[in-house]
Design a protein around this nucleic acid. Structure first.
Lengths: 141, 141
DNA sequence: TTCAATGCAAATATTTTGCAATTCG
DNA sequence: CGAATTGCAAAATATTTGCATTGAA
């Protein structure tokens, strides 16, 4: 997934690709830690000073709806975002350095399937986040 | 876990057990759906009209810290709460009726242990929520 | 040329805080 | 009694919205 893919996805869903959105996508696509609207706004204004705060909110919402951005819960509140990885899903966030790691989603799918069978519930959506110290930070200690 | 256990836990942690908190605990302990501060406040004022909104925020925070209450993410925002079940952990919420179900946490612990081994990260905290249609709502369709 | 998207400011939540009055231990 | 807790109101945050203007298709 790169900038062009995201812009393409916007077009494909009937949105116009504007200058601001391009700047915002550039900012978002390459972050490896959860970023807040305020941070996104700050960085974006480096690329394009006239960018408005409300536009960041509106764009982030769009991208979240399209499944390109993912909202992170329980890490400095619930208003930070990460690019969504489609294959990998299970998410680990290091509370020391803030880096996000995507893990294999197969074990989670397995767990969900089992839970469905045992309970009779139909599971449509899942949200898993793991927190701790990443391998890198552990070795630096 | 009942009202007395919660009040006991408050005492044990150096808090005073006041009239408001007692009312709030009563409200919280028996809900089977995620409740918002506003809802808690409304219900609590039924029991005790002079209850203030800020006290609800403060009490909820205390109870969350003590691990008695759990914040639910991604269901009508991120500001609803449920009593935390200590043994069961994995959480399923029905998006039709709003009921919360606690599932066996063993499979999640297993998944976490595997992930730790495969990645070298140390996982300290986990957050899993599942959404969908519960068995009861499926049968009513 | 048209209408979606923007920027700004104002309007809305939402949550936190200061403080005098209250109440638990 | 003394300190923690409360209720209220005000303050601080966070997010959404209205609207005139801009700009992508």
């Amino acid at each position: 997934m790169n900038t062009q893919d995201w812009l393409q996805a916007l077009r494909a869903n009937g949105y116009r690709v504007t200058e601001v959105q391009e700047a915002l996508v550039q900012v978002l696509i390459q972050t490896d830690r959860p970023v807040s609207v305020e941070e996104i706004w700050d960085t974006a204004r480096g690329l394009r000073p006239e960018t408005g705060r409300a536009t960041v909110f509106r764009t982030v919402e769009k991208l979240e709806t399209l499944g390109l951005l993912r909202r992170i819960h329980g890490y400095h509140g619930c208003s930070r975002f990460l690019p969504a990885a489609s294959v990998a899903f299970l998410l680990f966030i290091c509370t020391v350095c803030g880096r996000a790691y995507y893990l294999d989603r197969a074990p989670l799918d397995e767990l969900i399937k089992d839970a469905e069978q045992q309970t009779g519930h139909q599971i449509v959506e899942s949200h898993l986040q793991l927190f701790g110290t990443c391998a890198r930070c552990r070795s630096l200690k």
